[in-house]
Computed example of a mutant assay.
Amino acid sequence: MKQIKWTLLLYAILAAALIAGIGVAIAEQSIIGTLACIIAVILVMGMGFKTKKRMRENGQL
């Protein structure tokens, strides 16, 4: 059985929550909230992919 990579799981859950936040911000008609969530999603997903690449290079995946 494969081990759970908790850091990658955390990034995935956080990105999903931020994507939901985009929907909430749009429903609330908050331009600032929408833009903040979009920027945060880009940053979190970028950090997740960067972490995954580093783990693959170190043989941890």
Rank of each mutant, 00 (worst) to 15 (best):
E57G: 12
A36Y: 06
L18P: 02
L18Q: 00
L14M: 08
V41A: 04
A27V: 08
I32C: 05
A15F: 03
T7S: 07
S30E: 02
N58R: 10
F49R: 10
L35S: 01
G59S: 12
I4V: 14
K2I: 15
K50P: 08
Q60S: 15
T7E: 02
L35Y: 01
R54M: 04
L61Y: 15
I42T: 08
I19Y: 08
L14T: 11
I38M: 08
A40F: 10
I13W: 09
Q29E: 09
N58K: 10
I19R: 03
I4D: 03
G21I: 06
E28N: 06
L43N: 00
A12I: 03
L14D: 11
K53W: 10
F49A: 09
V41I: 06
G59H: 12
I13Q: 12
T51K: 09
V44A: 05
K50S: 05
G33Y: 12
A16N: 01
G21Y: 11
V24Y: 09
I22H: 00
I38L: 00
M55S: 11
A36G: 02
K2D: 14
Q29W: 07
L61M: 14
A27L: 15
A17D: 12
A27D: 15
L14E: 13
Q3M: 03
E28A: 11
E28Y: 02
K52S: 11
C37A: 01
I26V: 00
I19C: 05
V41L: 02
L35Q: 01
L61E: 15
N58Y: 05
G48P: 07
W6L: 15
A36S: 09
G23H: 04
L14C: 04
A40S: 02
K5N: 14
I32R: 06
M55V: 01
A17C: 09
E57N: 08
R56P: 01
A17K: 09
A25Q: 06
A16Y: 03
L10A: 03
I31R: 10
Q60H: 14
L14S: 12
C37W: 02
T34A: 03
I31F: 10
T51Q: 12
G59E: 12
L35A: 05
Y11N: 07
K53M: 12
F49Y: 10
S30V: 03
Q29M: 04
Y11I: 10
L9I: 14
L10S: 00
I22S: 01
G33F: 12
G21H: 06
G59T: 15
G46Y: 04
A25F: 11
T7R: 06
I39N: 10
I42F: 11
L18G: 06
V24S: 12
S30F: 01
K2L: 13
L9K: 02
